[in-house]
Computed example of a mutant assay.
Amino acid sequence: KPELLIVSGDLTFNGEYESMLGLAKYFRQIEENGTQVSVIPGNHDIHSSWARRFVGSEMEKAKQISPTAFRETFADFGYDLATHQDPDSLSYVIEPKPNYPIMMMDTNIYSDTETSKSPTTEGKIKIETAAWLAKYFEENAPAIWVGHHPILAHAKSERTGNTLENADEINPLLKEQGINALFAGHIHAQNISSDGLTREIITGALSIFPNSIGEITLNADGLTYNHRELAVEAWAEATNQTDPDLLSYSQTSYDIFYDYGATLGLMQMFEEQWYQVEYEEDVMDFVGLLNVRYFSGLDFGKDEELANHPGYKIIQENSKGFLKEYSTRSLEDNDLDDRKLFIPNEYLVK
Rank of each mutant, 00 (worst) to 15 (best):
S57L: 08
E215D: 07
K302P: 01
H186D: 14
P2N: 04
E305D: 13
L247N: 06
A143L: 05
A82G: 11
A238I: 03
I208F: 08
R28Y: 11
A75N: 05
F183I: 12
L336V: 09
L306H: 07
S207K: 11
K156E: 08
R28T: 08
A134N: 15
Y79T: 01
G301Q: 03
T107R: 02
F183W: 10
A155Y: 11
G123R: 12
W235Y: 13
N191D: 08
I40M: 00
L289K: 14
K135L: 10
L341S: 07
F342D: 09
R329N: 15
G147S: 08
A231P: 15
N33Q: 14
E325Q: 13
I208S: 12
G222C: 07
S19W: 09
E3G: 09
E16A: 15
K124D: 11
T35F: 01
H84Y: 14
E271S: 10
L290F: 03
K25C: 00
T163E: 01
Q273K: 00
L21I: 10
L306R: 05
L164Q: 08
Y92K: 05
Y26P: 00
R52Q: 06
Q241N: 10
T129W: 00
L264R: 03
A69V: 04
L81N: 02
I65F: 13
I314M: 11
S157K: 14
I208T: 14
V146H: 07
G204I: 05
H188L: 09
G56L: 11
S8E: 00
R71Q: 13
G288S: 05
K61V: 05
Y275M: 14
E305I: 13
Y249S: 08
H188I: 07
L323V: 03
W274S: 06
E122A: 13
E139Q: 14
G185S: 11
T203S: 12
K324F: 04
L218G: 04
E271G: 05
A167G: 03
L223R: 03
R339D: 06
A307L: 15
V39A: 00
I202Y: 05
G161E: 03
D303I: 00
Y312P: 01
S116I: 13
G22I: 06
Y110V: 10
T68W: 05
E122R: 11
A155K: 12
L5Q: 02
G15K: 13
E72Q: 14
N211T: 07
K175L: 07
A153G: 12
Q276A: 15
D282R: 04
G123V: 08
M104L: 10
K156F: 07
S253L: 01
W50H: 11
K302V: 08
P344W: 04
L173Y: 08
D45Q: 03
H154T: 10
F322M: 07
N166A: 06
G196M: 06
P310R: 02
D335I: 12
Y17W: 13
F27H: 12
D338A: 09
E16D: 15
Y249F: 15
L164I: 06
D333F: 06
V7K: 07
P150E: 09
L230H: 09
V283D: 05
P98R: 09
Q251Y: 09
S212M: 05
L206A: 13
S91R: 10
E3Y: 01
A131G: 01
F257T: 06
N180Q: 10
K63V: 03
Y275K: 12
